[in-house]
Design a protein around this nucleic acid. Structure first.
Length: 192
DNA sequence: GTACAGATTGAG
DNA sequence: TCAATCTGTACT
């Protein structure tokens, strides 16, 4: 049974959303075509107290303003001048919290031929054809991009928590905290 | 107007 | 393992 994720999913606490988003499906409809990916890897970024977050100490800029929206909005931005990072805002309005989607398992094409097409934040956006045009989109209301629950339940024991990637600059505490989650034994995550 | 960081990728 | 790569951001 397919259920579309609603607002009340995204307004839960961020760490819970990050874990529960594993095994969900992200759907991007372009015309009559659908691009679908199963979410297998996420990271949590929690507002002003998270040194690795763009909203550390409540910083608000035109780049990260979508992070402050109520849960369910797309917060997408560019790193290294060329790669897009897809985030979904979480929590209540004005809370700068979000979940970064790092990897999806491609569903809509032959996945044996292209096992590594979406195993990283940059590649994922290329695969899903999501870009700055979708900045601030509400996945609870949009008819273009949304998330689906297909009844798959990921067991707690199958969720691995590790430190987040590429944020050494955040210092020994924040760079070690285990807010990266992925599905155990999944071949489509970005790193092992 | 300009320096610079950066939540990566892909080649070696 | 490591360096190429480039735009938005946040300074001056």
């Amino acid at each position: 049974m397919v259920k579309r994720l609603k607002r009340n999913f995204f307004t839960q606490i961020t760490l819970k959303v990050a874990k529960e988003m594993l095994g969900k499906y992200i759907v991007h409809k372009i015309g009559k075509k659908k691009i679908i990916g199963k979410i297998v890897e996420t990271e949590a970024y929690i507002g002003p107290r998270d040194k690795a977050s763009h909203a550390y100490l409540g910083k608000k800029t035109s780049r990260n303003k979508a992070e402050y929206l109520i849960g369910g909005h797309i917060y997408i931005y560019l790193v290294y001048g060329m790669y897009w990072q897809l985030n979904i805002s979480t929590g209540e309005e004005r809370r700068p919290e979000c979940v970064l989607i790092r990897a999806t398992e491609p569903i809509s094409r032959d996945k044996n031929k292209i096992p590594k097409i979406a195993n990283g934040p940059g590649k994922l956006c290329r695969f899903l054809k999501i870009s700055e045009k979708h900045y601030g989109l509400d996945v609870c209301k949009s008819d273009k991009i949304w998330l689906e629950d297909r009844g798959e339940k990921i067991k707690l024991s199958a969720i691995i928590a590790t430190p987040r990637i590429g944020i050494d600059y955040a210092g020994p505490y924040w760079s070690k905290i285990k807010w990266r989650f992925y599905i155990k034994n999944n071949k489509f995550i970005s790193r092992y």
